[in-house]
Nucleic acid binder design. Sequence first.
RNA 1: GCCGGCGUAGCUCAGUGGCAGAGCAGCUGUUUCGUAAACAGCAGGCCGAGGGUUCGAAUCCCCCCGCCGGCUCCA
Length: 619
Amino acid sequence: MEARADLSSQDEGSSCLIEGSPNGMAEHQSDLDTMRHSAAHVMAAAVLRLFPGTKLGVGPAIENRFYYDMEIPGGITPDDLPRIEEEMRRIVAENHPFERDEISIDDAIERFRQMDQDYKVELLRDLKERGTTRVGSFEDVDVDPSNSTTASLYKTGEFLDLCRGPHVASSTDIGAFKLLDISGAYWRGDQKRPQLQRIYGTTWPSQADLDQYLWRLEEAGKRDHRRLGRELDLFSVSEDVGPGLVLWHPKGAMVRLIVEEFSRAAHLRNGYEWVFSPHIGRAHLWETSGHLDFYKESMYAPMDIDGEDYYVKPMNCPFHIQIFRSHLRSYRDLPKRYAEFGTVYRYELSGVLHGLTRVRGFTQDDAHIFCRPDQASEEINQALDFSLFVLRSFGLTDFHAYLATRPTEKSVGEDEDWARAIDALRRAVEAHQIPYDVDEGGGAFYGPKIDLKVSDALGREWQLSTIQFDFNLPARFGLEFIGEDGRAHQPYMVHRALLGSMERFLGVLIEHYAGAFPFWMSPVQAVVLPIADRHAEFAGRVVQRLTDTGFRVHLDARRENLNHKIRDAQLQKIPYMLVVGDREAESGSVAVRTRAGENLGAIAMTDLLTRFRDELPEG
RNA sequence: GCCGGCGUAGCUCAGUGGCAGAGCAGCUGUUUCGUAAACAGCAGGCCGAGGGUUCGAAUCCCCCCGCCGGCUCCA
């Protein structure tokens, strides 16, 4: 079985199975994009043939795939996909060249108007008026933004589409394709606009590449944390408790404890002071903080306590602020860094909930730094440094940073503060040589931020760390410190979470390691397997010795044969299997097998302890 | 929340209008075994909830809940 070979290599824990492409095609990425984009055209052509009156939205190539958004009369279901594929094959067989044509925008508007392609007409009007079809972060996929006088059209057989190209030469060149899925997508990403049907497909240069991609998708699915969470008995979500609310089972809780203990110790070593705060607070607090103005839709309904409204906290900041405010602060006291594993509850739309990575109740490794403006740069640098240290300690190395700057709409704070903060963030990212993108205007209204994201098994990006300036709360709560000049000054405030939330982080970790956690994080580090009942007593002593030394070891005393016990331990991804039979009981050793499938033979207990200790991280 | 799909035993799934099934897991018994599944038996179900159509509903219809893939949003 190939699956076995794969299991044995999971210790390597590459973060994303479907990243990149099979057979070293990466260097031809743009060719692949062209092919996929062309396939989207062929797909749209097929849908138009089968469902006359279909109105086209946009149809770009995305990573490994392509899609087209369409308004299809009567709608389609996944059952229609085979028919569409069949029609696509027919169009391919007809060997239509992709022909480019350039006409004036006004002529283009007229042509698409005649074809009743309202969405294309809207795109062209935008292009004409604003020189772009961009809406917010929505990509301009169909037109050339540098050219606002003419529009380029592509014709494939009877199918005509507004498109900036480029395309493959002929419909025969779109490769080995398969339609994958169908979903809803709002026109231009706007909930208030019509919802179109989005058809996803993928295409590759050869059938072998396609097969390999589909296989990779399947393999990626096997390391989906929701599936592993059940198979490894790590966590669950109960319908009776409620969606988006996680129950941590003993093994998952053990991993979480290990993560938390590591993180807490690291914070205490790095200049943070630990604090605790309650889960609810008076309405007044949330009025002052502004959450009831700008965050209310994410907060749960208040509860009445002695005739007064209390809210469950969606954030920890107001509490940490109260701790800061409990004394008059001197400039000599700063920075103050308050850290807490704060459990917060936020209302999330039911459709977005996802395993551990998108939930309604979660625990942040939260901290708030109160500092003087002149300390900001160093604090940011340290926070990012600390963040990278913690993430790397857990084996994550492949992240992408996003620097979010001041929004164009209303925002609070002085220009000078924003500029200084953005500069500090940018220099920190650059100093740490992390690949990053600038998300212009993507900051919160109260301050700029850096986010670190990693990708999950299915290629979806999840935010872990965030480091955000806040020019709003210090003002709202009237925070101050007494400066060297004897006068009151307003401190800078930085929110930061490194792992993000315990839930999301564990979800990402489960996938990163495909459930095969490194030895030091494994909920069960070794299982002792007696061969026959007469070895149970010696096996018990082995377990006791290892447990006394601080390792997490289980005994499998079931009346099953060795093969069965090994298989079960293997499926549970337990790092070490310690077989004890007559020979081992005799010599005071254990026969060691690793989950990678290596049989290390008999090892004396003292040597095993040394080996285990060597596998723990420094300190 | 919106669009689409799906909810049958703890898990994976079969069953499309006529007596609710299989494999694994569980329990009991037998087997005491050397590196990925011993053998046999037993038990296990409000077919997600509620309502409707029908002589008869897991199956058809309505509504609700949940899950999955997206959209939008974020830790």
